[in-house]
Amino acid sequence: MKRAIISGINGQDGSYMTEYLISIGYEVHGIIHGPGGYNEESVERPGSESPLFYHPCDTSDPGQLTKLIYDIIPDEIYHFESRGRMNVRYDMHEFSGDITGLSSLMVLESVRQSGVGCKFCQSSSCEIFGSTPPPQNELSPFRPHSPYACAKLMSHLSAVNYREAHGLFAASGILFNHESPRKGEIFVSRKITSAVARIRACEEKHLIVGDLKPQRDWGYAPEYMEMMWKIIDGDAPCDYVIGTGEAHTVGEFVEEAFSYAGLDWGEHVKIDPRYFRPTDSRGLRADYTKAKNELGWEPRIRFRELVRIMVDADMRALGLEPPGEGDRVLRERFPRIWWEIE
């Protein structure tokens, strides 16, 4: 049985990655933050037969990380830990750098120090492209526009450096926006769909958002995690851009979500300049040619379907009967659903 370590296991990506790996026969060890740091007695396990283990560990402490890796001897490490909240992106520069940037460096150095020879997969972000005109691919210039994006670039380049300088199997998935019902409501996609559900439930009257003009390449998170496994399963470490190749504005997301739920967005949406970003990547759209040719990547869920999946889930969470088109698409496109449907 293969073993994998996942940092950021409690986030959207980490939780889906966990479920996918377990579905294909892995033993999964998740890094969590807890008092006292890592030791053999601190391991948590949901059940006696479960292939999932939780390890309290401070990812800023290379000593703890090295011991953890040496004790588990993983075949693979998936690094998802980061902080992408708005106030962290723009106001807490040192925190963003420490958690998002330095943690990758610490994990990579711990892999090197442990000498276990495992594979490492870095979750990089399309935000590192910043103002580079779309479409963006693996050879596009990096022009990050926020402290978070700068920190993610540090993480990405750290993986490249350890691959080239130390011979580590360090690969990166440069993931464009990937969403799901597990996305936190601090992110605009989930903020929109959860507000739609609450408005339908008569719990709220308005959605307050910032700029509606930025364009993003929106995809469905579970299938991006399948690609992270394909990236690390290869014979040689490489970096791959993963996205849908389509760009849609935040305004389009708003309009699609409200219209799907039978609501007029013009009656419920208010613009607040306080939510505008000081600088923003106006146009992000993936050129996933390399991933398509080498890994067989082709997105099964497109923009409209993604929005409907998320609205269905948020309505169901409030006890409402959803339109159901998103649920139908999931059953149709994924005959073997390996994750828990929200």
Rank of each mutant, 00 (worst) to 15 (best):
A4F: 15
I5Q: 00
Q12G: 02
Q12P: 07
D13A: 08
T18M: 06
S23G: 12
S23I: 15
H29R: 12
I31A: 04
I32M: 04
G34I: 07
E40H: 11
L52F: 12
D61R: 03
L65G: 03
P74M: 05
D75E: 15
S82A: 09
D91V: 09
G101S: 01
G115C: 10
V116I: 13
G117H: 11
C118D: 06
K119C: 06
S123M: 11
C126E: 10
G130V: 05
N137G: 11
N137K: 11
P141N: 09
F142S: 03
P144C: 01
S146N: 05
K152R: 14
H156Y: 14
Y162V: 08
Y162K: 02
R163T: 07
A165K: 14
A165L: 11
L168A: 00
F176I: 06
F176M: 07
N177I: 06
K183V: 01
G184T: 12
S189K: 00
S189D: 10
R190P: 01
S194Q: 06
V196N: 00
R198D: 12
C202S: 13
E203M: 06
G210D: 02
D211A: 14
L212Q: 08
K213P: 07
P214E: 13
M227G: 05
A236Y: 08
E246Y: 09
A247H: 15
V250S: 06
G251T: 14
E252V: 02
G262T: 12
D272Q: 13
D280K: 10
R285F: 09
Y288T: 10
T289R: 01
P299R: 13
I301W: 00
R302L: 10
F303R: 05
R304N: 14
D312T: 08
G319H: 08
P322Q: 07
G324F: 12
E325F: 08
G326D: 08
R328I: 09
F334T: 09
F334S: 03
W339F: 15
